[in-house]
Each structure stands twice: as C-alpha cells, then as structure tokens.
C-alpha cells in the first residue's frame, strides 16, 4: 500500500495553482488528503502530478459577512466545528463537522476537500445542500459561485471544471429562532453515514437534507411545521430511491430515512 510515483508541486499563490492546473497532465489537488491519501495508497488513484494546496495563504479563514459566513477551502474540520462564529451562525454546520471521521482526521481534513470529493454520505455536502450554501470556485475564467444544489452532480462528481478549484463556501446565517437537527446513522463512530438527515426549521417551514441515500445529497423544502413528523417522514421515504448495495440493502436505507427524518423533525419542533 504505497502510492505510485508522482511529481510534487507546492504553489504559493492561487494564480500559480491555477496555472499548474492548466499546464499539468493528470494532476490532482491535495489539501488534507484524508480521502485522497487512502485512495492513492491503495493505488486506486495514480496522479502523475500532485498539487499541494496547503501553502496557499488565507484560504483557511472563517469570516462573517452580512448574511453569510465565508469559510475558506483550507479550513480544517476541527476549526469549523470549534469556531465560535460557526457555532453561533451556522450551528448545523458546526454540529455536522464535529461528526466527521475522528479527531485526527478532523485536524487535517478540509472543508474544500470534502466538498470537492463529494461523497454522497459525507456531512459537508449534505449541510451545504440543505442550507443552500454557495460554493466559490476559481479557474482560468475567473471566480464563479455555484449553488450547492447545482454543485453536487452525482457520486463523487461536482460541477467543478478541470481547471477550477474550490476556494471557499458561503453558508447563510441562521435567523433568530431557527432550529436545526443533524442525525446520522452509521455502524460506528466516525464511519460514513448509511443515512444522514439535516433538518432546518425556519419561520414554520422545514427544510430537510438527506445524505447517503442516493448518489448526492437530496433536499426537500417547504414542509409545514404543523405537519405530523411521521407523515413528513413517509413522504420523504417515498421520494428517495436508495441504490442496492451488497453491504446495505436499499430497503434498510429507506427505513432509516423514514426513522431519521421523523426524529429530526421531532427534534426541531421540540427544541423550540
């Protein structure tokens, strides 16, 4: 389990990074390396060139803007989970980030890496989709912002172009009185979720995000807070179509979607 050979690049600026992306063949970006590292050690991925983003200055900032928080792509999960700004304005994000992998994984793994990797069961894509975050990307055509719902295309596939990198994500601030819940079911602490549910209650409207069920996070909006949680859960279950896998039967994922949605909704309502 040793990676195949590659050439190593450590650009110091975003411009240099983008230049390398354009000029190098079969290049991969690495930030925390917590997903790419295992795949390279198993030789499932064999880039010829590895571009290390860790020397880019300023990309790990967590900044408060008018109605959103801007979090740099190099912000480590542990920094996100323990940031007072995130806890105050995006408590759902702080809570979900605190469940990623383990302590040592969270010390190194990055927000940008998780978004770009787009694992359908991962926490940050689910939270970004549920909160309606925007992913800020930069490439040779300049910066653009992509709504999370358009960013996650399918299993480990995003709307990023080959010459683009994620530079930050903008998470809308929670309003006063908003409630949230994050529930995930995994076999063990730190394992990827079999199903994860993020729920936000905002002015009597419920928004629900489902991770792990399909090839990207799913978002269901505009449930009324007056509706019975069980009824909401049924509707969501009927709307998802989990894929069958040798490890987890689709039927089981469906059942988990129903149970977790019911519990997440109930938690949002009772926490008022």
């Amino acid at each position: 389990m040793k990676p195949a050979p590659f050439r190593y690049h450590r650009p110091r600026s975003l411009a240099d990074t983008l230049q390398l992306l354009v000029t190098l063949e079969n290049a991969k970006l690495i930030a925390g390396g917590q997903s790419l590292g295992p795949m390279m050690n198993m030789r499932l991925v064999q880039p010829a060139e590895l571009i290390d983003l860790n020397a880019l200055a300023g990309l790990d900032l967590i900044a408060e803007k008018d109605d959103f928080l801007e979090i740099g792509a190099l912000a480590r999960h542990h920094a996100v989970e323990s940031s007072t700004l995130v806890k105050k304005h995006c408590p759902l994000l702080a809570e979900a980030a605190g469940t990623i992998g383990h302590y040592a994984i969270r010390s190194r793994g990055t927000l940008g890496g998780s978004l770009a990797h787009a694992d359908p069961a991962a926490q940050l894509p689910l939270v970004a989709a549920t909160l309606g975050a925007e992913i800020v990307v930069n490439g040779k055509r300049g910066e653009r912002r992509i709504a999370a719902k358009d960013f996650f295309v399918s299993m480990m596939t995003t709307a990023l172009e080959a010459d683009e990198i994620v530079v930050s994500a903008r998470f809308p601030k929670a309003a006063a009185g908003d409630r949230h819940a994050y529930l995930q079911f995994s076999r063990r602490t730190g394992d990827f979720a079999i199903v994860a549910v993020a729920a936000v209650l905002h002015s009597r409207k419920l928004r629900l995000g489902i991770g792990g069920a399909e090839d990207k996070p799913l978002v269901f909006e505009d449930f009324s807070a007056h509706e019975d949680p069980q009824a909401i859960a049924r509707k969501v279950r009927e709307a998802v179509q989990p894929t069958e896998s040798p490890r987890v039967p689709a039927l089981y994922r469906e059942e988990l979607v129903e149970v977790l949605v019911k519990r997440a909704v109930a938690r949002c309502l009772t926490s008022i």
Binding site: P38, A104, R108
Partner: peptide
C-alpha cells in the same frame, strides 16, 4: 493500516494529531 483508519501512526503536526500514513513527508 496505511489508510487512515487504525490511528497507530498518529503524530503531531504543529501540535495537531494527524495520520502520518496520509501525509507525504515532502509536505
């Protein structure tokens, strides 16, 4: 394990615990 799961290789990088099997020394 060399895939970041077992934790045996954990070292501190600038004081923060990290899996040494998921870092290239050159970094």
């Amino acid at each position: 394990c060399e895939h970041g799961v077992c934790g045996a290789c954990t070292v501190l990088v600038d004081g923060k615990p990290s899996r040494a099997c998921l870092i290239y020394a050159v970094q």
